[in-house]
Amino acid sequence: MPRSTGAEATATCGEKRRGRIRRAFAAAFPLTLPIMAGFVFLGLACGVYTHALGLPVWVPTLMSALIFAGSAEFVVASMLTGAFNPVQVFLTVFVVNARHLFYGLSMLARFRDTGRKRPYLIFGMCDETFSITYAADPPAGVDRGWFMFFVTVLNQLYWVVGCTLGGVFGALLDVQTEGLSFAMTALFVVIFLDQWLKEKNHAMAVAGIALSALMLLVFGPDNFTIPAMLAILAAATVLRERLEPVIGLAGEEPATDAATSEKDGDAR
């Protein structure tokens, strides 16, 4: 995205930079509030779980800071009570988190020119952070790199705080997380809906729901994500000839309205 640098040269550099960072924070923070609610309570649940397994108090904090992937941390916690087998842990976590491969493919263009923030943006790209940084457009004049940075860092902060509290006060808490964890479901429903309203062709959205539901039926809740990913990849590949002219390529300006509206008709 082109950025004007001529005007910035006149203002004092530090002030300008602080203002830009503050605006990015102001744009990011409200979007992370639902994540705060969901993560603090899911984190509490994760901490309580590790406590119940008899693991040391530092385990949930360390996992939330360094792994930062909810479902994987529950799996690792249970594996920490078993025999020492890091290779098996590596393979299991890779399979559990394989869906992140798609996030990276989708963010290749958006993480361009994010400079020193880039490694952390990649490290912190959990489901919720990816969804917001991909789907939300910061208001005009807000730096996208700093916006994505604050979404990432705030979300991780909520998670670390939740997991730590759960680990420390685990025995004292009787957390009822069943209802609150619906915040994550609602987040993905809202983002799915936003994308649906924005997109020119619904083929991949429909394929995502239908193929995931199908694979869930066939492979069950613990093993369906990789078959679902492969099926989605196959659908995208099969539909490419028809879809590419409509949705374009990542990192390119979208096609002009005149060019797409004509495609729109036959795509539906």
Partner: peptide
């Protein structure tokens, strides 16, 4: 780059 645009709607469905 095509996948970068094609996958996200499906990924949100998957999520």
């Amino acid at each position: 780059r095509y996948l970068g645009n094609a996958l996200p709607p499906a990924v949100f469905g998957l999520l």
